[in-house]
Simulated assay, not measured.
Amino acid sequence: MGKLAEGSSIPPSSSVGKAIVDEVRQSPILALIIFVPVVIVLERLTPDAHTLLFLLSVVAIIPLAALLSRATEAVAAKTGDAVGGLLNATLGNLTELVISLAALQAGQYLLVKASIAGAIVTNTLFMLGGSFLLGGLKHHIQEFNRVNARFQACMLFLATIAVLVPSLISEVDQPPAPEVSQTLSLGLSILLIVVYALGMFFSLRTHKELFASVSHSGEEEKPWPMTLALVLLVVVTLLVALVSEIFVGSVQVAAEHLGMTPAFVGFIVVALVGAAAEMTTAFSAARADRLDLSVGIALGSSAQIALFVAPLLVLVSYFIGPEPMTLQFWRGAVTMMIVATLAAAFLSNGGRGTWYAGIMVLALYGIFAFTLFVLPPARPS
């Protein structure tokens, strides 16, 4: 990494250039950044090549996720793992939000709800399980702040209950009129956003001492200068949003050509692509014996999607959707979210992580993914 000029907080251009070259040498995956302009240009020239655009957009998001990961780690080194995890979850969920907004505007509510449920399950099971596995393969036993993990798991549980209620009333003998479900979902959405805001105030202001990171002895890479990290966060986030729009525009047709259902695409594919940036950071942090950051990203991202992104989409649907969206999910999605939340609660009890715990969580995610692939759920009413 290039050093800062004496007495300046802004790295000189030569240092920035050297930093970029060094990063590419250390992480050859960053060479895939060339696919970002390729997919943008191709979308302008051949917008009907949906399958090719879908595949290229997935590849293009990978190096952007890696850059976002390194920049977020640099900020987390200055602010601490609690704030760093929240920052990474927020920026990572921006991709989910862009994808969902595009689908919402097109009236693809099944895709929106599948991506929301899938993001919660993917972050809670796949990301958390992968972090335990990758970190446990390098470190015998890893410790994390279980107070923080339990707090995030409780917030996630609250959100799943809020999703469960409108889903349950649709299953009674005399289901209420659609207007009742819309009103209930609107009220619950406002309540969840308020609870999420108060939760952030609790963890970052009034009781932040409870969320301090557990000390670790792992070797850390030298962080980027703060100015460089913040600039890259902004630029890469914008590029991720741009590539995500291309991804949304091509995913449905490409899914049909590749033999995937809309539910599987939303629950698995969109969720994995949307969480690529967060996963990169969570996995690398676990390998560096910073399981606090990994757990904070995985559970924090799930809680943010459930308590903020999903309710926000309900509110926005009144303005850009063909009709208001509700928090009513199909039974299978609600079941998977509840099981994922319970798994997160069990994992957070001990405050320790091992590789086999990761295997069990990943196996649970594999059960859900395979079930959706061979037996997609029916469209919810």
Rank of each mutant, 00 (worst) to 15 (best):
G2E: 09
S8W: 15
P11R: 14
P12E: 15
S15A: 15
S15P: 11
V16R: 11
A19T: 15
S27R: 14
P28W: 14
L30Q: 07
L30V: 03
A31R: 02
I33E: 02
I34S: 02
V38C: 09
L45V: 14
P47C: 04
D48E: 12
D48G: 04
A49L: 10
H50T: 11
L53D: 01
P63W: 09
L64D: 04
L68P: 00
S69Y: 05
S69Q: 06
R70T: 11
A71R: 01
A77M: 07
V83I: 13
E96T: 11
I99V: 13
L104I: 01
Q105S: 13
Q105A: 12
G107K: 01
L110P: 08
L111C: 03
A119G: 15
A119Y: 03
N123V: 01
M127W: 03
G129N: 07
S131K: 05
S131Q: 09
S131N: 10
L133Q: 08
L137P: 15
L137Q: 13
H140D: 14
I141V: 15
I141D: 09
Q142S: 13
E143G: 13
R146A: 01
C154H: 03
M155D: 00
L158D: 00
V163T: 12
V165W: 06
P166I: 03
L168Y: 07
Q174E: 13
P176L: 03
L192T: 02
Y196G: 02
A197L: 12
L198I: 03
F201N: 05
F201K: 07
F202M: 02
L204T: 12
T206Q: 06
H207P: 03
K208Q: 12
E209K: 08
F211T: 03
E221P: 00
P223M: 13
P223F: 09
P225Q: 04
P225C: 01
P225H: 06
A229C: 08
L238I: 14
S244H: 04
G249V: 11
V253N: 12
P262S: 10
P262G: 08
G266H: 12
V269T: 11
V270G: 10
L272E: 02
V273C: 10
A277Y: 00
A277F: 00
S284T: 13
A285W: 14
D289P: 14
L293D: 06
V295G: 15
A298L: 07
G300I: 02
S301F: 12
S302C: 10
A306M: 07
A310D: 11
L315V: 11
V316E: 02
S317E: 05
Y318T: 05
F319D: 00
I320D: 04
G321L: 02
M337G: 05
I338D: 00
V339H: 01
A343Q: 03
A344I: 01
A344D: 06
A345C: 04
F346A: 07
R352S: 08
T354N: 10
L362C: 11
I367N: 06
I367G: 12
F373D: 09
F373Y: 15
V374N: 10
P380Y: 04
